[in-house]
């Protein structure tokens, strides 16, 4: 019986400890919590760039590129959600959050624009790819800044 109680206690402790991860305490933890959605966004923008360029080179069909871009819209939505629901502890954290949110929103815009182009709406390939590249660079810079804090 005591073993069961001990196990129950340990489980409860593990659950509580698991929940605690959600509310970061130190600056390092804050930076780390923002890095994950930023890396996710970089991955999405990278995929979008590849899908767009392949369509420009006539190596994929519009259907595949469209689907790939749509999937990345969903990934960015998830990342934006993670950044927006983050609760900063101080002014530094709040500043990072604002920057990250802007970067992810820009990425969403660039990917949505690319999808519009893939479906034959407005703009040209060059400007679409340029927007994606610019977005990728912003995301990368921000990730690098945060990485300095976390010491990775």
């Amino acid at each position: 019986m005591q073993v069961v109680r001990a196990l129950l206690g340990l489980t409860a402790l593990a659950v509580v400890a698991g929940c605690a991860v959600g509310s970061p305490a130190t600056t390092v933890d804050e930076a780390r919590a923002l890095t994950a959605p930023l890396e996710q966004s970089s991955s999405a923008v990278g995929t979008a760039t590849l899908a767009t360029e392949l369509l420009g080179d006539d190596r994929t069909t519009a259907a595949v590129t469209d689907t790939a871009l749509l999937d990345q819209v969903h990934v960015l939505e998830e990342a934006a959600d993670a950044v927006a629901t983050f609760v900063p502890a101080d002014a530094t954290g709040a500043g990072w959050q604002a920057d990250a949110l802007t970067a992810v929103r820009d990425a969403q815009l660039a990917v949505a624009d690319a999808r519009g182009w893939a479906n034959g709406a407005g703009s040209d390939e060059a400007s679409v790819v340029a927007a994606l590249d610019a977005s990728a660079e912003t995301l990368e810079d921000l990730t690098a800044t945060l990485d300095e804090v976390t010491g990775q």
Partner: peptide
């Protein structure tokens, strides 16, 4: 294709992109 670019696969559409990159529409 993806590891050097830091891209993480999370959808089926990504899985076919390297094939399109390598072999174009026919391979796709």
């Amino acid at each position: 294709v993806f590891l050097p670019a830091g891209i993480e696969v999370s959808s089926l559409s990504q899985i076919v992109l390297p094939v399109a990159l390598a072999g174009g529409k026919l391979a796709l």
